[in-house]
Amino acid sequence: MNQLPVEYLFFVGAIGLVGIGVAGMLLCRNLFRVLLALVIAEAGANLLLVLTGYRWDAVAPIVLPGMPAGTTMVDPVPQALVLTAIVIGVGIQAFAVAVLIKIYHGYGSLDRRRLAAMLDRDMNELAGVGPGRSPEAPAGKRPFPPPEQQEGRS
């Protein structure tokens, strides 16, 4: 185990990527940058997963013609898992981009706090709460029918 520092470096890289990605997701206000941070965190998690199957004296899990029988190989199971995880990741990214496009068309902004304020306003309007009152206050005339009437009808 005289190669320990190399493996520590891999770990630092993978965990650093996860940390940077999570920090970006929490701190950035632009939703597109949050998506980019998610991409980075995903890459770090994949790296961490492959690292769990790594063995420092092993070769890649592919049998070559001239290979002796007892050659140690790295664990193929985490590699197979990560293989599928990466392809799922790009599908999720595309879906997130589509949702962002729709949000931008609807609200004209990608800023997280501005979007939250606008969503609050819309929800309050829908619930019949005036703009100056908090959503916890007793509502006035709501557009929905009261619950007992709904039960009686069904």
């Binding site: 770990f11 630092v12 940390g19 929490l26 961490l48 690292l51």
Partner: peptide, 18 residues
């Protein structure tokens, strides 16, 4: 608070993996 959370997460991961 966010930074504190990230620091805790990174510390936890480092301790666990090492």
């Amino acid at each position: 608070i966010s930074l504190l959370f990230v620091g805790g997460l990174v510390f936890l991961l480092l301790v666990l993996t090492l």
